[in-house]
């Protein structure tokens, strides 16, 4: 199993995204406000935008009705810096508008202060 310390927890504040290398692969580490960590390939599956320049946020949900917004997924969405496609980090990086598509993801765990990415 390949694993690697990619940064210290102190190098990534809650709500931030950080670019890193996992072996030769350029990845992004996302730390949510609730201190969950996620890691994905730093390339959007649509047209290849650098996800590290994207945004961690919430999203309106499919529980909304016409004219009545329901906003949730607080802190669970990685939004692409170009066309704004929304990827659900909690759901394997699946795209909200088309859950058949997902970002390439990596496993992450935190040990002491180390953020460790592994496959």
């Amino acid at each position: 199993m390949q694993e690697q310390v990619v940064c210290k927890t102190s190098e990534l504040q809650p709500g931030e995204i950080r670019e890193a290398y996992f072996g030769k692969q350029n990845i992004v580490i996302c730390r949510t406000q609730n201190d969950n960590f996620y890691a994905f390939m730093n390339q959007c599956i649509h047209q290849g935008a650098p996800l590290g320049k994207g945004l961690l946020c919430g999203a309106t949900t499919d529980e909304s009705n016409p004219g009545d917004y329901h906003y949730c997924h607080q802190d669970e969405i990685l939004r692409c810096p170009w066309h704004g496609r929304e990827f659900d980090m909690k759901n394997e990086g699946r795209m909200l508008a088309n859950p058949n598509k997902k970002l390439a993801s990596f496993k992450v765990r935190v040990e002491n202060e180390d953020v460790i990415v592994y496959k």
């Binding site: 994207g54 810096p81 170009w82």
Partner: peptide, 11 residues
């Protein structure tokens, strides 16, 4: 605004 940085690419 449509995307994460208004009408611009965030990067």
């Amino acid at each position: 605004q449509p995307a994460t940085a208004g009408v611009d690419r965030a990067d």
